[in-house]
Simulated assay, not measured.
Amino acid sequence: MSNLVPLTIIKGAGFEHIPLPAGENATVADFHTTLTKTTATPAPITSGFYKIVAGPARPASYTFEEAKYVLQGQIDVLDEATGITHHLVPGDYAFFPVGSQVKFSTKSAGFAFYVVTRPVKTAHPNLEGREEGAAGAKAKL
């Protein structure tokens, strides 16, 4: 008997089209939640994309952990604990521990990949049925 565990693969989990909700200048698009098996109590890990365009600052208070990696543009993050605004550009990484309070903004547009310790909140559009092995799952080219 093997202790090997199969991977979870989402086909076509691209960021080619993530619509902003009406009247909003930022959104998250979650891919999939996986329960960890590395602790006594499984915890959720969800990944997805964050998109923001110019507009009002978007406050966020963290009751979970998050890591963001900027892929395109610029995302400004005001750390309310220090009063410092960090200007994140492609290749920059930010970690938000539980208890963080920030405001996200941009003067143009920004796009980031994130991983969070919470279940899916806002599902990525058009991903239903794309988990490998699901009927009709295929990559978007």
Rank of each mutant, 00 (worst) to 15 (best):
M1Q: 07
M1S: 07
M1R: 01
M1H: 07
P6D: 14
P6A: 12
L7E: 13
I10A: 03
K11C: 11
A13W: 05
F15L: 07
E16T: 12
H17A: 13
I18N: 01
I18H: 02
L20S: 06
P21A: 11
P21T: 09
A22R: 07
G23E: 02
G23V: 05
E24N: 09
E24W: 07
E24F: 05
N25P: 00
T27N: 00
V28W: 15
A29G: 02
D30C: 05
F31N: 14
F31E: 02
H32M: 14
T33W: 01
T34P: 00
L35F: 04
T39L: 11
T39N: 14
T39I: 04
A40W: 08
T41M: 02
P42T: 04
P42A: 02
A43T: 07
S47R: 06
S47H: 04
I52A: 03
I52E: 07
I52D: 07
V53H: 04
A54H: 08
P56D: 08
P59V: 06
P59D: 06
Y62D: 01
Y62P: 00
T63F: 14
F64K: 05
E65M: 13
E65A: 10
E65Y: 05
V70Q: 00
L71E: 03
L71I: 15
Q72T: 09
G73V: 12
G73Y: 06
I75W: 08
L78I: 10
D79Q: 05
D79L: 11
D79M: 09
D79N: 10
E80K: 15
E80G: 02
T82N: 07
G83E: 12
H86Y: 15
L88C: 06
V89A: 11
G91R: 09
G91H: 11
D92T: 07
D92P: 11
D92H: 13
F96M: 14
P97E: 12
G99P: 06
V102K: 05
F104Q: 03
F104T: 03
F104R: 05
T106G: 00
S108C: 01
A109E: 11
G110F: 13
G110N: 05
G110A: 07
Y114V: 10
T117Y: 04
T117K: 08
R118Y: 02
P119R: 01
K121M: 09
K121I: 10
T122L: 14
T122Q: 09
T122G: 04
A123P: 14
A123D: 03
A123L: 14
H124T: 03
P125L: 10
N126R: 14
L127I: 15
R130G: 00
E132Y: 15
E132H: 06
G133E: 03
G133V: 14
A134E: 11
K138G: 04
